[in-house]
Design a binder for these strands. Sequence first.
DNA 1: GCCGTTTTCGGCCCGACTGTTTTCAGTCG
Length: 587
Amino acid sequence: MAVTNEEISELFEDMASLLEMKGDVIFKIRAYQRAARTISQLPQSLELAVRQEQELKKIPGIGDAISKKIYEYVTTGHVAAYERLKADLPDGVLTLMNVPGIGPKTAMLIAKETGASTVEGVVKAIHQGRLQELPGLGERAAENILRHIHSLRTKDQRTPLGQALPIVERIIADLRERCPTLKKATPAGSVRRWQETVGDIDIMGTAQDPVQVIDALVDLPYVREVLVHGPKKASVVVDPGLQVDLRIVEDDSFGAMVQYFTGNQQHNVRLRDYANRMGLSLNEYGITNLKTGQIEKFADEEGFYDRLGLQMPPPEIRQGLWELDLAQKHALPRLVEQSDIRGDLHMHSDWSDGREPIEAMMEAASRFGHQYVALTDHSSGRGIANGLSDERLQSQIKILRTLEGFPVKILCGSEVDIRADGSLDYPDELLADLDVVVASVHSAMGQPVEKMTERIIKAMHNPHVTVIGHPTARLLGSRDPVEVDMEALLQAALETGTAMEINSSPERLDLKDTHVLRARELGVPLVISTDSHSSGYMDKLRFGVAVARRGWCEPKHIVNTMPLEEFMAFIKAPKSERIHIFAGRVD
DNA sequence: GCCGTTTTCGGCCCGACTGTTTTCAGTCG
């Protein structure tokens, strides 16, 4: 059975909770929590690392004891220390912690004193008045617990970035319109880090009249509920049900504040640890000299990091992994930017399921500033998407080859279905006429992992397949990714010279950030495409660029940053040679 | 349990909020 990093991360998170219940040393507990959070965002599967006998201790926050436990879990399926802890404590204590407001201490107290081991048991204990009598708890606490039980912590209460970002932009625009004194305004938190989903929205600003801005937020027509309304801070819930926190701060502490609220938490923990060793203490107001007690303020983040002798890491890679080590050496990578992208290799016209004619798409691509663009309408297997028959594809190719009047170089392409058995929808002779072939899975998504992996790898071995489109076929919040051995796909991509797509569509973001980081490590060619179905969609490119940045990609890691001539040479070369061309770029 | 520009021992991020407390513990981000 495959062991996922997520599973291992949860195990250590649980171990930390159990240790806290037992009243163990807080620093040991923190160590487990740190390890858990680091593991949840690692690019590479720990199972694989163990099997390849790699050194786990190189991972920050993982030392002797934890690496041994990882080894134990991967090889035996359980961790003895964890089982012992669980056996020592009342049943169900971990379940109780699913209620917001109930942490390890309270869970332990409730389980021990009331015997409740389920959420229902807690409700019963409250109705019987037994919970209220416990030391440290009272009527208010019981009321809060009851209220929170209705909004149980579940994993999927996060909002896709694609939905959150337009809301942020609208709020900032509306505040600007209503408050002339609003100076700076920027999102912080997971939005600024371009995380694929966000829990809430943080906005930081400076203004001559903070009250005016705070009041303006509270009065916005799409504010559904006001949670907090103070002179410098407000928290509201806006229409689709998303919490927005706005803070207005003094100009001179804006840098420290934005840094603090951008996180992520792991990054901040490591940064403050690092600062402590310099005799400095960090908080959201500035940098304090521990000896003199003097506080320095910072109007911008660059100054803040600079005071610590660090290069400022882009928000997307503030992950608490290795960014601070590189920042210290002033050796952070120059991450890819939207302006580096020279072409879009995945889009549809009204020949299949796009909404606009070819000409409109080409006009938009030209306006966007692309040097080249591939039209990739669906293949015949996508009946529902009005996929092109062999004959229609042939006539489309003819039209595209003679289309004139666009500054952008037009490439003939197709998004061809990878059928359930790994064969493709078009014969090889037809595929050979195309410049760019994006091969994607759109059907039989429930296949077991071995079959799905084999299926996609078979498509990679086709000499005409340029790119694998949205490799896991997930739809954020609505469709789980297909089960596939990503490591095997990436290895096959290397062997066959096939590129992997970063699909920029905000509901896909597929490959995802951690896959991209792994692909980058291995040297797999990556492509950032939009999968546009209308001309207005092309600017979704920024989402794909953000995923690439979260995967630490520089321009050289992305195939479609190549200028036209270089790109044409790349796709004209046989696949077996492409990986060498690409590697020459990366070295 | 982890880690090293002061340390292989002795430190370990920081503050806000809440509800329960008369000075703090627990939870959260």
